[in-house]
Design a protein around this nucleic acid. Structure first.
Lengths: 190, 190
DNA sequence: TCAGAATCTGACCGATCGGTCAGGTTAGGC
DNA sequence: GCCTAACCTGACCGATCGGTCAGATTCTGA
C-alpha cells in the first residue's frame, strides 16, 4: 500500500477545495502531509499534476454518467435513474465538483479541467436541445446547479444532515422540479 | 468625475471574478487599467482594500434585501416580492455574487466577505427555522443556490438570453418550486 | 503666478512562489 | 554483502508576489 502518494492526493484535494488552487502552496501541502516540499515534487511532477491527480477520478465518473443520457432519457424511469446517479456522484465527489464549479473558469488551461468543462457543456447542450421552452431549460439548470451548489457549500454553510436523508429528499425535490418538463418524443435530433 | 479609482474597481471586480482573487496580481490589474502598479496602491491601500471596494456595494444591497424578510414573508405577495428582489439582485451583482460564492470560504478573513457570510447565514437560518421538513429546506437551498449558480456561470457555460426573459422565466420557475412549501403561521420564533 | 494638494511613476524591498538538483537513506533481489 | 532502485531531503534558483518610498508631474484655487 503506497500511502504517501495517496495521502498527498487527499491533502491536496482538501486544500484545493477549501483554500483554492492558486492560494494553496506546495509548501503548505507538504506540511499538512508531514513531508518535505521536495517529496511532494517527487511523487507529483508539478503542482498542476497534483491537481490533475486529485480531480481525474471524478471527471472519469462524470463521463460514465453522461453516457446514461444516450437513448430514451425522457421516460420517467430513465430520468429518475439519471437523477439518482447524478446525486450520488455529487455526494461522493463533492470536493472535486466544488473545485470545478468554483475555480474551473480560472483553471481552463489544465487538461483535466478542460475535459470536465467539455463534459458539462455536453450536458448543457443535451438539455438545451431536449427542451422547448426557456422555463424547462431553467428547471434543468436550477435542479442540477442548485443541487451541486447545495452539496458543495454544505460544509461551510449548511446544517449537518445524515447522508441518506439528504439523498432521499434531494431526489424527491428534483424529480418534482423536473416533472413539468415536456416529454419530447425524440430528443436526439441535431 | 474620478475615473481612475472607479476604473480600477471595475477592472479588479472583473478579474477577481474571472481568474480569482489570489490568482490576480496587482501588476495585472494595473496593466488592464493602463496605469502603473504603484498607482493602484495609491488609489487603494492594499489588494484586500481593492477587493473590499469591489464587493461592498453588493453586500450593502444584500443587507437591504434581507430586511424584507422581517414580517410576514409567507404571504404569497411578500414571497413573490422577495423572489423578485433577489433575482434582480443576482442579475445586477452577479459578478460580486460569483466572487462570494466561489471564493468566499477562502477569503473568510476579509471583513466585507465575513459580513456577507453572516448575511447568507442569516438567510439560511431564517429558512431553516421557517420550514418544517427537510424537503422544504432543500427547496429553498436549490431555488436560491440554483438561481445564483445559473446566473454566475452563464458567462462561461450558458446560452445567451435576453435579461428580461431570463428574469421572467426565473421568477416563474422559482415561484413554482417554492409553492409546495407549507405556510407557517408565525415563522419568527427563536 | 505660484504654492500646495492630488496624482502618478520607477526603483527597490523582503517574502514566497513553483521547481531543480545533488546527495543521503532505506528496502529488497541476487 | 552488495547493488540497484525507490524514496526523501535541504540547499538553492529565478521569477513574481504585495507593498514602500522618494521624487516627478499635473491639477487647482487664491
Amino acid at each position: 500500500m503506497q500511502t504517501t502518494t495517496e495521502d498527498l492526493r487527499l491533502v491536496a484535494l482538501a486544500e484545493f477545495t477549501a483554500a483554492g488552487y492558486s492560494a494553496t502552496s506546495l509548501q503548505r501541502i507538504a506540511e499538512l502531509a508531514d513531508v518535505s516540499k521536495s517529496s511532494v515534487l517527487y511523487h507529483f511532477s508539478s503542482k498542476e499534476d497534483l491537481l490533475q491527480a486529485a480531480v481525474t477520478p471524478a471527471v472519469d465518473r462524470l463521463a460514465e454518467i453522461l453516457e446514461l443520457l444516450a437513448g430514451d432519457f425522457f421516460t420517467p424511469e430513465r430520468r429518475t435513474a439519471f437523477l439518482a446517479e447524478f446525486i450520488d456522484f455529487l455526494l461522493i465527489y463533492r470536493r472535486e465538483v466544488n473545485i470545478f464549479i468554483n475555480q474551473g473558469p480560472s483553471l481552463f488551461d489544465v487538461p483535466v479541467i478542460e475535459r470536465a468543462t467539455i463534459l458539462v457543456r455536453q450536458l448543457a447542450e443535451f438539455f438545451h436541445s431536449s427542451t422547448s421552452t426557456l422555463e424547462d431549460r431553467m428547471r434543468f439548470a436550477i435542479a442540477l446547479g442548485g443541487a451541486a451548489y447545495m452539496l458543495c457549500s454544505q460544509d461551510s454553510l449548511g446544517f449537518p444532515t445524515p447522508v441518506d436523508e439528504t439523498r432521499a429528499a434531494l431526489l424527491s425535490v428534483l424529480t418534482e422540479l423536473l416533472a413539468p418538463v415536456a416529454t419530447l418524443p425524440s430528443p436526439v435530433q441535431e
